[in-house]
Design a protein around this nucleic acid. Structure first.
Lengths: 192, 192
DNA sequence: CAATTCATATACCGATTGGTAAAATAGATG
DNA sequence: CATCTATTTTACCAATCGGTATATGAATTG
């Protein structure tokens, strides 16, 4: 078993369950079956450990989203593709996904928030670029691209989170049909 | 000066700035110009202090939202009213608002999250009741009321948060026009 | 085999954590 | 003034915090 990997998994597990600030390095080490100095040998500091957890997972998400957001003249198609990829990531890497969302909404001055911030901005930039590319279809948007991007991300995130909170099972139970319905609602409103 | 009030303000300030878990009771006391035992005299424990901070502010929001959500047969009107009240609260009590959102997305097992959870559920219930009341207007919704409620809250929250993050000023700069536009987008989609 | 590098553990550091016992002060009441 | 109660302080607690000096075991390399 790869020690480094074991520590990263242990850290994500605990960060996800209790939050970055309320977990001690000692606890992470014990949970991984190693001692504290070993952890420091690999990651240097607690925030260094967090950086590694984030980098490893967030990079994967960013790459997936970059691919999915490639625009070919069909906005609904692209939005559905992006939403699907995003959802599938949230399901496969659910612990990281929920931890990432938590950090997103942490206080700005908080170190843990600072670690995730660049990836959140990148994600927003990717979604924004879809709406910017769709200007020919949608016509003059008067700067509404930003609002669309925010609304789109906000809607999906809140939807996933709320479903996860209200469902009994320990997994995200959302089908592609539900995602399509959500994207449709986003595009055409509630009167349809 | 009311000692109790001073402590509550000091706590909210620091919780908002650095997050509940990364702030020490000592720091809160110093910031309030008193000593630790005085704080414990009033609030018993750190989580007791948090409970008081939340109760005082969240109750206010809940009451406002209950009033604003009273449905009289006009869905757009009600949604605008609710969105406006919500936004005005976010502006007037911005520190608490942002702290509340942060706690909402904290890990489920986290004590601080548990403290805010009932108020979040209540808030959701209030928004949901609007869409349930609007069934006559919207026709059979096939359980989509929940999705509407989630989408509505998610959109507004993310919108406020993003604007706050990208604006330089230390205040939420959103006009009523922008809120109307957001509600309109939510109701009619992006093709309008 | 010897020297060196990599990996892991024991045992410790000062600082801070949430929390409290007990004394001192302040304000009200008889 | 004396008593009582409501506050607030000084001084402390064990436990945990993030982090490290140093020794030791395990591989690798000359």
């Amino acid at each position: 078993m790869d020690t480094r990997e074991t520590i990263l998994n242990s850290a994500l597990e605990l960060f996800y369950t209790k939050g970055y600030d309320s977990v001690g390095v000692q606890e992470i080490a014990e949970n991984a079956g190693i001692t504290k100095p070993t952890l420091y040998y690999y990651f240097g500091s607690k925030i260094g450990l967090l950086d590694n957890v984030i980098e490893r997972n967030a990079t994967k998400l960013i790459d997936l989203m970059k691919d999915a957001s490639f625009y070919q003249g069909d906005l609904p198609l692209t939005l559905n593709k992006v939403a699907t990829v995003y959802l599938e990531f949230a399901i496969e890497y659910r612990k990281f996904y929920f931890f990432m969302i938590a950090l997103t909404y942490h206080a700005k001055e908080n170190d843990a928030h600072k670690a995730i911030e660049p990836y959140i901005r990148e994600l927003y930039r990717i979604i924004l670029s879809i709406f910017e590319s769709a200007e020919k279809e949608l016509g003059n948007m008067n700067g509404r691209q930003q609002k669309f991007a925010m609304g789109f991300i906000g809607t999906i995130n809140y939807y996933i989170l709320f479903l996860a909170e209200t469902s009994d099972a320990d997994e995200v139970a959302i089908t592609n049909d539900q995602i399509f319905a959500l994207v449709h609602q986003f595009m055409h409103g509630i009167y349809s």
